[in-house]
Design a protein around this nucleic acid. Structure first.
Lengths: 220, 220
DNA sequence: TACAATTTTTAGACTAATCTAAAAATATTT
DNA sequence: AAATATTTTTAGATTAGTCTAAAAATTGTA
């Protein structure tokens, strides 16, 4: 239906729309896609012709309902495949992204439905990101970053803000990942570093930079 | 490493080499790839430059060891994915081919190794075709077509000669597939149709055309 | 062996996606 | 508001893969 490249552009634009409101600029897209502005202009014209987005010269773009659906479907496929790679094939959570970037473009609705069923209709991928449903609905769970908690608070890790491999590998190293239960022991005033207790037994000190990038659900 | 298209050409040439000895002609490749002879000439030149095959103008092509390895790896990936789709996602055996045609081009050696492990190192795909090993070795099991048996012989279905959907669907309909145990009851002299007993209880009559296209292992 | 038929290759053109370099529009600064 | 800087678009070229139509080579046949 849509090419590999078209799906990738739509996904990138969708992710940019999520952060900022309003129109998405050509340069922002070029940056996200690791390509040149001229290439973006060309592709954006093509996508506008196919009614996947609204484009006005020098004014940026905005996804149409149709374009957003394609983007969300691509995200759904990506996150289901990541879950498969992690839960069934035992890939570490920092290894799944690149392969899922390829798998997300496989064309078959039945395949994705059956994969979803095989995985037991998971709500979140290995990074804690929500997996959109078949109809495009996304259940955001209500989360805060670990850096928002106060001394004594209990929580469970559900995801990350920074998705870069270097950060994921770091969490892997200190054994902190989705599902880990945390209690904040102390917050050091000097550098805002946190002393935390993981899974009721391991004491750990993490920098403010790390705390800011961990998403948690407050244990109630 | 190699493009989608390059892998498909190498696989097609490999399959043609399997049947006939000697050089593979341009038209035969065009036919197998559903494309034009001119396109084949172009691609074959490119593959020859990359040392994936030997090409002499007007003389046809022959895979190099390197080219054959790429082709066999592609076949291995195809058949492992078919097995996954059939065994884990419950696709019927006539539905797996098209999706596997896409999945076979996903680039990741680790992925295939882990998939192989997840599936329990299967020796054959859902159609009974052997799955090449990591090093390219193919264990042919020693089979004959059902039409070669004599009255009273017992055997187990292990595969098919004709891989077209129309044939696979027919076998599905009469409930005859890999693993089915067969005993030949009668061979009708008039049209060579076979009366067989399946799994020790179901009596079935199949045409010579069907018997010729079923691969079996003799029960000893 | 020469003519015809078939196969294969070449030449030139097309599409999708990309790029560089230059031009045009918009935004910022003084 | 004019000058400068930045962003975006256009123009023209490139690459991978494909095509049609014509030319060249090979094969088959009389």
């Amino acid at each position: 239906m849509y090419s590999f490249t078209e799906e990738n552009y739509l996904k990138a634009i969708y992710k940019l729309s999520d952060n900022k409101a309003g129109e998405i600029t050509t340069n922002a897209i070029a940056d996200a896609m690791q390509t040149k502005a001229a290439s973006v202009t060309d592709m954006v014209k093509k996508l506008a012709e196919k009614q996947l987005l609204k484009y006005e010269k020098y004014k940026g773009v905005k996804l149409s309902a149709k374009g957003r659906k394609v983007a969300i479907d691509t995200v759904r496929k990506h996150r289901l495949w990541e879950t498969f790679l992690h839960n069934k094939l035992n890939f570490k959570w920092d290894e799944v992204h690149e392969i899922a970037e390829q798998l997300e473009h496989i064309q078959s609705e039945t395949l994705i439905d059956k994969l979803d069923d095989f995985l037991g209709y998971p709500a979140h991928d290995p990074h804690g990101d929500p997996i959109p449903g078949k109809n495009g609905e996304i259940k955001m769970h209500d989360v805060v970053t670990l850096s928002n908690l106060k001394k004594g608070d209990r929580c469970v890790v559900v995801g990350v803000v920074d998705h870069r491999t270097i950060f994921l590998k770091h969490l892997q190293k200190i054994n902190l990942m989705p599902g880990s239960k945390i209690q904040v022991s102390t917050i050091n005033e000097f550098d805002q570093s946190h002393n935390i207790k993981v899974n009721r037994n391991i004491e750990l000190q993490i920098s403010f930079d790390v705390a800011k990038n961990i998403l948690v659900k407050i244990d109630s």
